[in-house]
Every structure is written in structure tokens, then in C-alpha cells.
Amino acid sequence: MLLKKLQKIGFVFSLPSILFFIFFVSIPVLFTIALTFAEWKGFALSGIRFIGFNNYIELFNDKVFFKSLINTSIFVVLTTVTLNLFGFLGALIIDTKIPGTKFLKNAVFLPVLLSPIIIGIMWSRMLDAFGIINKMLQSLHIIKLPILFLGSEKMALYTIIIATIWQFTGYDMLIYYAGLQGIPKDIIEAARIDGASERKVILKIIIPTLSPVITIAMLLNIIGGYKVFDIVYVMTAGGPNRASEVLATYLFQQAFRFNNMGYASVIAVIIIILSLIISIIRFRLTKQSV
């Protein structure tokens, strides 16, 4: 009786979150999926017209979509690997608590607090052909002509990746640092007393223990990477000539420039599916290793 009452109270307290999830997550996602089978300019609901699988057929013939998919995948892989690596190394360094690590922690974390739009504008100005970085390199006689970081089709995407890594290293570092605090210090001490090298301590004790943390950090990076929009839009708007086009910027263009809400919904669904697949794979791999 008491248990039933407690369950009812628990349900009542959970109700706001459940309702929020239903109205602001579930229904919009389902509406988006429904829209993938429709043609809609987005001006009035009465304009929705069902066209079956036409949007999906169009997707398979869309070179720009595949280019944006490749660019996004490159972005995800490079940012995930680098952020986790730098984040982990940074966490190890600040965990040593040697003088200066507190300052390092704050300095590395500070960019995380800024909006990607501000970061994008800042880096755009610095990396401009006549910006401070080129001016410095030219004054040191390292280069003669300016490097077109954002103006070159070969460099634009990688420049954005570097800016993203600069911004979010602190975020991963904090996740790993929190994870390191959860490792019992006596295990590490015992290993050191037994003669284990630092390398062995990291590889055989710390990394296996941090496995769930690594999973979470990687998943967050992957999902964030597939959704990336702000920093790309501000730095290059997907240019030059679509060289840095990612799924989200192409989705934005389809929805709000070309007024193809149905087709844009397909791209949104692809982003969701990709994130889900990778999350499931990662969870399965973690489960197997445990």
C-alpha cells in the first residue's frame, strides 16, 4: 500500500519531465520523421503535401549531401580523437597538482564558456588573410604571402576543426579529471610500489578504470560533432564553394533558403540515425569489454 503510494508520488514528480520530453522532444521528432515523406515550404501547415519516398530518392542523387556527410564525418573523427586525447592528457597533468596546474585548468576551460559564435568570429578575424596570425608569420619571415586558412578549399574544414578543438579541450579535460578523482589512489600507489612504470599505470589501471568515462566523453563529442552548426556557419558558412559544408549547414540551407522543409527533415533524420548507430556501437563495445 505504502509502496503503491510512493510510486504514485514518484510518478507525479516525474510528470513535468515526462510531459516536457513528450511535447518538446518526442512530438517534434515524430513530426520531423513524418515530414520526410512530405513537401512543405514551411509557411503554413496547410501547405504540407505527401510525396512518399521522393525526398529519400532525391537524397541518393544529391552530391552536396554526400559531400556534407563526408565533411561531417571527418569533423567527427578528428575532433573526437583529438579532444579525447588532449582532454585525457590535460586531466593527467592537472591531476598532478604541481604549481601552475590550477591556472592551466582555468585557462583551458575558459573557451568552453564562450559561445561558438564568438569563438567563430574571433578565429575568423585572427585567421583572415590580413589578420594577426598571418601578419605575425609574415613579420617573422616564415611566410611571404598570407595563408588562406578559411579561403582555401583544402584548409577551411581543418581550420574549423582546430578552432573547435581549441574551444572544447577544456570540456573533455574536465570530464576526465572528474573520472580520475574516482580512481582509488591506493591502487595506483600499490602498482607504483610494485615497480609499475607510469606508462603501465596509465595503460593498465587508469584507462581501463576510466572506460565508462571514455564512453561518455566520446559519445558527447560524436553527437556534438554530427550536430555542429554555429562555428561552421560563422567561420565559412560552409564555403568556400561548399568545401566546409556540413550536414547541419546544408540542412539549414535546404530549410530556410530553399524552403524545402521535407528534404531538410530527411537530413535531420540522417543526423539522428548516425548519432544513434554510433552510440549503440560504442555502448555495445563498452559492454563487451566489461
Binding site: 575568423s124 583572415d128 588573410a129 598570407p146 588562406l148 579561403g151 582555401s152 568556400p240
Partner: peptide
């Protein structure tokens, strides 16, 4: 044209 047109915005750079 000045170099780096694709990396400059019209109203700033």
C-alpha cells in the same frame, strides 16, 4: 582582387 577574398567578409575584412 586582394588575396584571400573567400576568407574575408564584405563589411569587415
Amino acid at each position: 582582387y586582394a588575396p584571400g577574398a573567400n576568407s574575408m567578409d564584405a563589411f569587415v575584412g
